[in-house]
């Protein structure tokens, strides 16, 4: 646990030195949502309010995809991964720490910002809460799944496009359950089953992804 904490501390320290990078996902989210709102501004307000949570979910998904490339990129380029793989002390827990810190630094800000944006755009407080919860469970699952693909495409020069093409279809179940939960809440229907299913997906990826990431990183380094 001590090593895990040291890893997180190091990642946070690096992020704190990277300047404005930390705010980029939130700024990007704001731009996407503003663009969405401008493009649907001619539709009646009732329909827009119904669309807002779904727009936010889709925007978060896009921001997640854009961030994925950076999960292991720096460690790959500066030789940290080479250094890790020579040690017998390098385990799956490091991968979990890496993914967690990446999620906390690049996705969690938008998980916090999104409900605020939703609230400002007029969605009710319960739907805002469900939006927050669904993102809180759904985005780590997306990070875990995306990290595997990120690790696989690490050594490719044009990996970013390939990464998006592979990852976006895989995110569909998470998107469906996430948006369904929010939509059901908006329509005052039962949303618990969707949240539970999101939780199950998260737990499955939490078990599979670290092992798959290690194997994928090994392939990329080879």
């Amino acid at each position: 646990m001590e090593k895990f904490n040291r890893f997180i501390k190091k990642e946070l320290l690096i992020a704190s030195r990277s300047g404005y990078d930390f705010f980029m996902p939130t700024i990007y989210l704001l731009i996407i949502i503003t663009s969405f709102n401008i493009s649907v501004s001619y539709i009646s307000k009732n329909i827009i309010i119904e669309l807002v949570p779904l727009m936010i979910w889709l925007s978060c998904l896009l921001v997640c995809v854009l961030n994925l490339e950076s999960v292991f990129k720096e460690d790959y380029e500066d030789g940290t991964l080479d250094y890790f793989f020579t040690s017998d002390n390098f385990h799956e827990s490091f991968i979990i720490a890496k993914i967690f810190s990446h999620w906390a630094l690049s996705v969690f800000p938008i998980v916090i910002t999104s409900p605020i944006i939703g609230f400002l755009l007029g969605i009710d407080s319960q739907t805002t809460l469900i939006l927050f919860l669904s993102l809180l469970i759904g985005t780590p699952a997306m990070s875990l799944l995306g990290s595997v693909v990120s690790a696989l495409t690490l050594s490719l020069k044009r990996g970013k496009i390939l990464l998006s093409i592979i990852v976006l279809p895989l995110y569909v179940p998470i998107l469906i359950f996430g948006t369904s939960a929010v939509n059901n809440s908006f329509l005052n229907m039962n949303f618990y089953s969707e949240l539970i299913l999101l939780g199950i997906i998260f737990l499955i990826f939490l078990l599979i992804s670290p092992v798959a990431c290690l194997k994928s990183l090994k392939i990329s380094l080879d």
Binding site: K10, I14, R17, E77, D78, G79, T80, D82, Y83
Partner: peptide, 8 residues
Amino acid sequence: KNGLKSNL
């Protein structure tokens, strides 16, 4: 590649 973090 040295495996050092340039911003630390």
